[in-house]
Amino acid sequence: MFLQHLECSACGRQHQWSRLQNLCLSCQKPLLAIVDLTAAGRTLTRESVATREKSLWRYREVLPLPRDVEPISLGEGGTPLLHAQKFEDNIDLWIKDESLNPTQSFKARGMSVAVSMAKYLGATKLAVPSAGNAGGALAAYAARARLEAHIFMPRDTPRANIIECRELGAHVTLIDGLITDCAAEIARRKREEGWFDMSTLKEPYRIEGKKTLGYELAGQCQWQLPDVILYPTGGGTGLIG
């Protein structure tokens, strides 16, 4: 592992990676994981990646979990890049099919890495506000890690997403309001309940899982990136990664 420290995205203050962290202790802004890319690049090469398993953990050198620790994985990553032949006459369009991740969305990438680190650093109860896919991903990876998952969802969340979380063993609380109200409820109760907050940009490692989308895309395009990438931004962790 070549993770050096966590760094505040706003004020630049450095934090130890070896303890559970949410936001910067100085300004309460998001933390970013800083990796020694030069050292990682000595073993993480195009040739070495090609021989590894088709999961996001093939990029282990630039991911935060210590090398001797088993990741919390369900086989996420390694999704196909499909040619959209219907548009072949006027545009060369390719689609990265993230629905083939274990929980059917790219949220599996972030939660695999974030739950792995949360467990390694001692968290036992994880909480997240969600209107769907993030909740399902946390429920699945927390179950895999044998950790408690507490998911707060707006009451009008699609029934399928609510059932998914409950069937995976998560504690689901429905809130009359928006996802921001769900986040506020977690913030109000997390210290008393002992929850570690896994909300978007309130912990540093979901981004680390999402960044593997970029590595995969580069490899699938023979290391020449497309002219344009269309990305559904959502909360922003994938785009930042």
Results as ranks from 00 to 15, higher is better:
S9P: 00
A10L: 08
H15W: 13
L20P: 03
S26L: 13
L31F: 10
D36T: 02
T38G: 14
R42L: 12
T43Y: 06
S48Q: 10
T51F: 08
S55K: 01
L56E: 08
L56I: 12
W57T: 01
V62R: 08
P71T: 01
S73V: 09
L82Y: 04
D89I: 05
W94Y: 15
D97R: 07
F106W: 08
K107D: 04
Y120M: 02
Y120Q: 04
A123L: 13
G132M: 07
G136H: 08
A137R: 03
A140H: 10
A143G: 14
R144C: 13
R144I: 13
L147H: 11
H150K: 00
F152P: 04
R155P: 00
T157Q: 06
R159M: 15
A160I: 14
R166G: 05
E167G: 07
E167H: 12
L168F: 12
L168W: 10
V172I: 02
T173Y: 04
L174A: 06
L174C: 11
T180K: 12
I186N: 03
A187N: 04
F196M: 02
M198T: 12
S199H: 01
T200C: 05
L201K: 12
L201I: 09
L201R: 09
L213W: 02
L217H: 07
G219Q: 09
C221E: 01
Q222E: 15
P226A: 08
D227Q: 03
G234E: 01
G238V: 04
G241N: 01
